[in-house]
């Protein structure tokens, strides 16, 4: 008689995904019926080879190569897939977890290294913004007025009756201390070391 033997670890990837801190307790990945609603409404899928339905199938089939698939970096994090899923699954959230797995493995770091200036600004001012790595391209795309806005922002805010957007020193120290103890500071250093 033929029997089907389920591999012991056949659900390793999906279990790892569900264990992740980002995974909502009600994440319905096991309920996925592969209907493809997620892919049909996905801006990433309409413009690139990214296919959230296929990504979910590969997670459920324990296909770890999905972590290294370039296409997972084409998700827009718009959550349209989440809002429309009839099974309560959230492909956008799972995508974010897979990207973190890729970063933890090392390969994914190259994908985020250009954003590391955001982390520096956060540690320094207690606020983030568009990473200054991209200022030049923004000024080129938007026009020189964009640079003027950046240079005069505190004056413009004062004209609008708003105070400085930078946190007081004591608050910045608190934020920095939290980010040191949470491991973010080390993580940021590790990412920056990968700068080519």
């Amino acid at each position: 008689m033929k029997t089907i033997k389920l591999q012991n670890n056949s659900l390793k990837l999906v279990k790892d995904v569900l264990k992740d801190l980002k995974a909502s307790p009600d994440l319905g990945i096991y309920k996925c019926v592969q209907c493809g609603m997620c892919t049909s409404v996905c801006p990433g899928a309409s413009q690139t080879e990214y296919d959230p339905r296929d990504m979910i199938r590969r997670v459920l089939e324990d296909d770890e190569t999905v972590i290294d698939d370039e296409n997972i970096w084409n998700c827009f994090s718009c959550y349209t897939c989440n809002s429309i899923c009839p099974s309560g699954n959230n492909a956008s959230e799972i995508n974010q977890i897979l990207r973190q797995m890729s970063i933890d493995k090392g390969e994914g770091i190259q994908k985020i290294v250009s954003f590391s200036a955001y982390g520096d600004s956060f540690m320094e001012l207690g606020v983030g913004s568009i990473p200054n790595t991209f200022f030049d391209v923004m000024v080129k795309d938007v026009g020189p007025e964009y640079m003027n806005l950046k240079l005069n922002i505190e004056d413009i805010r004062a004209d609008l009756g708003l105070g400085s957007y930078i946190l007081p020193e004591e608050a910045i120290n608190e934020v920095e201390s939290i980010l040191d103890n949470s491991g973010f500071k080390n993580r940021l250093e590790r990412i920056k070391r990968c700068k080519k």
Binding site: S77, I103, I112, Y118, A171, S182
Partner: peptide
């Protein structure tokens, strides 16, 4: 409140921030 820090949102979706740090802030 001038002490309030950013939510980390952009950094979170750049995949730069980890969930624990975002939650602590």
């Amino acid at each position: 409140d001038e002490r309030q820090s950013c939510c980390t949102g952009l950094g979170h979706y750049y995949d730069l921030f980890d969930q624990l740090s975002t939650t602590a802030l």
